[in-house]
Amino acid sequence: MRYVQLRAFHYVATSGGFSRAAEALFLTQPAISDQVSKLEDEYDVLLFNRIRKQVVLTAAGQELLQITRRLFDSEQQALALLSESRALQSGNLRIVADSAHHLLHILAAFRKRYPGVKISVRSGNTETVVASLHNYEADLGILGEMPTLKNFDCELLSSSPIIAFVAVGHPLAGYKKLTFAQLTDQALVLRERGSKTRVKLEEAARAEGIELKPTIEAEGREAVREIVASGVGVGFVSLAEFGEDTRLVPIRLDPEDRMMMDEALICLHERRSSKLVQAFFEIARKSSTVTA
């Protein structure tokens, strides 16, 4: 087994095909195909199912990918260690967040101090954030809770209650505060399962003896916002994430002390020593706020 064969496999698996892997590695497609085929032949294992023009990982391929993710991530860490001075000048930082709202002021400060660093940000719920970090697909994550897993380092960014919100013309728009009992006959627009906001909201309602049943389930915070803005029903979000939207009216929930959302910056403990990760944590620590 050679390094070039593992590298070819890894890039095909992560880029989604032989031609894209060839482009990423500045090689020809036949060269990539040959390297992967030699790896499969030498160990008599099928790593990809070739279906027409698509390639799909087999079970063995998925297991190998988990290993090569660690292998090539370690390689990147080694390169970063050997070129620490350059890491803060022209490195790459990958962030996955359940809400980009909590990143804005940190990103502005980070970009001002390290203008040469390329930053990529993508969104996802709690499950996506944790999986992306475990799979080495991201360096940093933003979660709607302080994680209890031992292999994470974290920094509290903010803490705020979950609130309800409705469109300006909605019958509840004049309310300052709502109880769960007042929501039982309303059309509720809830996030997808796996959303920490939904989990905490439903747990607090059950503690009051009430089961919240969604009229509409929407994937993502922005989808919920747009549906509610159309006048369909009642949505929910943390106060820190509500922002400014003249189409919507925020309403406090009672009891809100049971529905506090702690937004945290997290990374795998083993990645904490990375210069870019350290720098981001440092700026986040100075910028963190708690919203009441």
Rank of each mutant, 00 (worst) to 15 (best):
L27I: 05
T28G: 11
T28L: 14
Q29R: 09
P30M: 05
A31P: 05
I32N: 02
I32C: 11
S33T: 12
D34E: 11
D34P: 00
D34C: 03
D34N: 03
Q35F: 07
V36G: 00
S37A: 02
E40C: 10
E42N: 04
Y43E: 07
D44K: 15
D44Y: 09
V45Y: 14
L46I: 08
L47G: 04
L47D: 03
N49F: 10
N49T: 13
R50N: 03
R50M: 06
I51V: 14
K53C: 04
V55Q: 06
V56I: 08
A60Y: 12
A60L: 03
Q62R: 04
L64D: 05
L65C: 01
L65Y: 01
Q66I: 00
I67L: 04
T68C: 02
R69H: 05
R69A: 01
L71R: 07
L71P: 15
L71N: 08
F72D: 08
F72H: 08
S74H: 07
E75C: 05
E75W: 15
Q76N: 07
Q77S: 04
A78M: 02
L79K: 06
L79E: 09
A80R: 12
L81G: 00
L82P: 00
E84N: 06
R86E: 06
L88N: 09
Q89F: 15
S90D: 14
G91K: 02
G91I: 10
N92R: 09
V96L: 13
V96E: 14
V96C: 15
H101V: 15
L103V: 14
L103Y: 13
L103S: 15
L104V: 15
L104N: 13
H105T: 13
H105D: 10
I106R: 04
I106L: 14
A108C: 11
A108G: 11
A109M: 09
R111N: 10
K112M: 12
K112P: 10
R113N: 10
G116R: 12
G116N: 11
V117C: 15
K118D: 15
I119G: 13
V121F: 02
R122H: 05
R122W: 08
S123Y: 13
G124D: 03
N125L: 04
N125Y: 05
E127Q: 15
T128M: 08
T128W: 01
T128Y: 03
A131G: 01
A131C: 04
H134T: 01
H134G: 02
N135H: 03
N135A: 11
Y136D: 07
A138Y: 14
A138G: 02
L140G: 11
I142W: 03
L143K: 13
L143S: 02
